[in-house]
Amino acid sequence: MKPLTGFSLLRPPTLVGALEMMSTLEHAQPIVGGTDIIPTFKDLGSKPVHLIDLGLIEELNGIMEEDGKILIGPTTTHTQILTSKVIEKTAPALHDAARWIGSVQIRNRGTIGGNLCNASPAADSAPPLLVHGAEAHICSLEEGHWIPLLELFKGPKMTVLKPNEILIGLRFPTIAGASSSFQRIGRRKGFTLSVVNAAVYVERKDDALKEARIALGSVAPTPIRAPVVEDKIRGKKMSEELIDEAAEACVEVAKPIDDVRGTAEYRKDMTAVLVKRALREAWRRTGGEL
């Protein structure tokens, strides 16, 4: 364990204040819960940074439903996501994923924005948001813009955020007749990183998949979508055969590596298992039968 040393902590009460710090200070790094940053400092040594604590900025926290869209502030904790009736109803996959992030202590402290900006390929928040078509609001002192969430991730532990930019919001549309499911496998059940995770979003029209979206985590340098597979099953009549077909096709999309949590071969096998589970559950949640 390395001692914490050499960084400062600034706690701006306003977003403008935080953005000013991000643009004027060299080596500024946003922090909220610190559940990824502080353990990393203890493992690898502190970085000589100005930690900008966004935790006091009220407008960055909370969940809102507005004009057919769900808006989530980046400092919203996993516990807030997990206990939100709005999220449970409109994005069940995100609700499910929040349950499996960390422990109670970590969920009370860690935030959805932190989970995404930490940019772990295994981040459990990412696949559900990706299949719900989430966008990320990126802001600097000069300007703000929305990007598809998928574009936030550049590589393992790397985002497209520039040194003066902060993730200030997330949004995704609410669609009637849609549902979703999140599935994961870890080395044990509770309080562990995902070896593989997957989310599926479906819109049902009678017995057919009007829309289908699949996202996978921990099988590539970033969380990914599987558009090839989505195109293959979109519009088709739902069946166990179609589920098998989708799962097999996802195995081809997955490009995992061997690491301490699992082998590439195991990850490919589990990708199929999780996609099947997620497709079945999301379908059932729309009221569909199999």
Binding site: R11, G34, I38, P39, L51, G55, Q105, I106, N108
Partner: peptide
Amino acid sequence: GYPMTSCIILAPQ
């Protein structure tokens, strides 16, 4: 009121 691990929280927070 919420359980949290104090080892990864900075005192000024």
